[in-house]
Design a protein around this nucleic acid. Structure first.
Lengths: 340, 340
DNA sequence: CTCCATACTGGAAGCGCTTGCACTCAGGAT
DNA sequence: ATCCTGAGTGCAAGCGCTTCCAGTATGGAG
């Protein structure tokens, strides 16, 4: 492996100058820099990250903590982060916090404290006080996506407003009996998004003075099968007169559409379904949804935190992400005689 | 931040001894080690990875190169790798090679050459000669998953055997007109799995002396929408008499089932559909498939390569993964009068 | 024609660990 | 009793960069 010194010797300058030329910090004359760049390329020189990190304290590495990778939101956000990090020359180190509490704790103590990353992005994890403290103790910028924290900045959406918008869409179409599929009471106890989304649904109903009907509320785990089963039960309940259904995630909405099809309920003629996410499968099911631009959320968080790292190191600011209602064919005006 | 020296002083020993006690390399008396461990815990000491890496040449970091994260296979393999790496105390650095050739090249030159990882797992990427060379030049163990290489070891499946098994299953059920949905000729030009899977299908037919019918071959990109569109075209073609359909991935198989439903074709009464993967959504669609234990593939690759890293550093051996036919309700014996 | 700020450059001191080497000290073999 | 072996420990030399500092040259200001 060629080292800095090899380059310095070959270029006839000191190691210090090579370092400056390659990193862009400090002054180097144009001619010298050109010469060094040429020699470095010739020798295929790439600086050792360990040496560079040790000397400078900079890692050029971004940590990402996520609870899982299967659900669309997570891998989409991760894709966004990764693209942005790569563009900036940063590596991405993935910490997959599993359900195992020991693993989770290990991540926060052993792994993160090795000082391997310059910054951390936490995705959709509700942090315990202890965890926030550990994170703060790292002394590096932290940004939260799709979760909330009293003390840490985040790139987030108003998760209540999102379902409120979805619900309002249905109400405006004339639906009066609207159901909801969201997180189970105990689903992801440590993740507030489900309850927020539920709150938005409730709010929309309340604003129109419509009573929330417990029989119209289903619980699922945000996946397609989860939505399928919850919807089948909801739709199988006779006499509800439900003509609209809001799902707190697109995956559940898709599950609901599948359930409706199985039961011979036409979407949107008999039932309007709206989801939340902007899942790529939505197009296939012509699903009306509230797009939360997940990939963008990841990219934005990465950009935000990398800017912080590269500049002073003050704490990044929180950012509110926008979202848009994307109307497709799974929602329609309520039929004249509304009887499900 | 507390350093090794702090611990050494507090424990009344030399830094060398602390290092040995904490890393487990070299001899330290039981009493001394206990004392050091106690002090280290007390001081919340965690070694700086940069310093440790620089001095030892070990990174405790595993690189993973993937072309994408959305498709089920990828995030499932990654989950398996991550779990295993975490267990072993290794970080996972993710390199998401996008379609952009510049980014791809950048990963192989700039990123990987910083010597940040002890080993690399390449997932479902057909490497160019140049890339294999670059990888070899890194001088670290490399393992391929779901791709092939003449020179690099891998954890792989016989991708032809898999579809052969799926196809044989259909043939054994009495189906004689069997269609296939696989990769487009130019889909992932640099990824051989699609053509292998096609080859397995062809082989199964040939073994039974059944001619392969071009009209029964569909092309898609391994996703649900892709499978949907390909299947709709295949199924929409009148007079083929097709009663069985093999999809080269579960996602395409699911798309095909959706297409069949839309066209009023019953599965499995009118059409048997079999996929390949073991996708978690398969259960919902009662999809018969060939389970390739993807998460296991990831875990196995990680275990394999970490063992190599921890021991001598000789090259890891290739491993052939097993796969199992998982019969569910999407396949059935061919109806008496076979006419689609 | 001086003087001084500025642009470049090199020397050298680390960054915080790991590890080869030398040393001491028991305990077992002779 | 002597020698040898090996466990246990400390010293010190790095690992390959970064960056502070000091030194030299250069150009414009006075």
């Amino acid at each position: 492996m060629t080292s800095l010194d090899d380059v310095a010797k070959a270029a006839g300058v000191s190691a210090a100058t090579v370092s400056r030329a390659l990193s862009g910090r400090g002054n180097v004359s144009k001619a010298t820099r050109a010469k060094i760049l040429e020699v470095a390329a010739e020798l295929d020189y790439v600086a050792s990250s360990a040496a560079s990190s040790l000397a400078s304290g900079r890692m050029r590495n971004l940590g990402v903590i996520m609870p899982e990778l299967h659900r669309w939101f997570f891998n989409t956000v991760l894709t966004g982060i990764s693209a942005e990090a790569t563009r900036a020359g940063y590596d991405v180190t993935l910490y997959n916090v599993t359900a195992d509490p020991e693993v989770r704790q290990e991540i926060f103590t052993a792994f993160l404290r090795r000082r391997r990353v310059d910054a951390v992005i936490v995705v959709a994890l509700e942090l315990s006080d202890w965890e926030e403290l550990e994170l703060a103790r790292l002394g590096i910028p932290v940004v939260i996506i799709g979760g909330s924290s009293g003390t840490l900045p985040g790139v987030s959406m108003d998760d209540a407003a999102v379902t409120e918008l979805a619900t309002a869409h249905l109400l405006e179409l004339g639906h009066e009996v609207v159901g909801f599929i969201g997180g189970a009471e105990q689903f992801d106890a440590d993740y507030k998004v489900p309850s927020q989304r539920r709150a938005g649904f409730d709010r929309a109903l309340r604003d129109r003075h419509i009573a929330s009907e417990p029989a119209l509320i289903g619980e699922a785990d945000f996946t397609i099968p989860g939505g399928f089963h919850a919807a089948r039960q909801l739709l199988g309940t006779p006499g509800t007169g439900m003509t609209g259904l809001v799902a707190a995630s697109d995956e559940m909405a898709i599950g609901a559409i599948l359930a409706a099809r199985e039961l011979g309920i036409r979407v949107p003629e008999d039932l309007s379904v709206v989801g939340v996410d902007g899942h790529e499968l939505g197009a296939l099911f012509e699903l009306t949804t509230v797009d939360q631009h997940a990939q963008n959320q990841g990219a934005t968080a990465a950009k935000l935190i990398l800017a912080t790292v590269e500049s002073d190191g003050t704490h990044p600011k929180s950012l509110q992400r926008s979202f848009d209602l994307l109307v497709r064919r799974s929602t329609a005006r309520v039929p004249r005689e509304s009887s499900a």
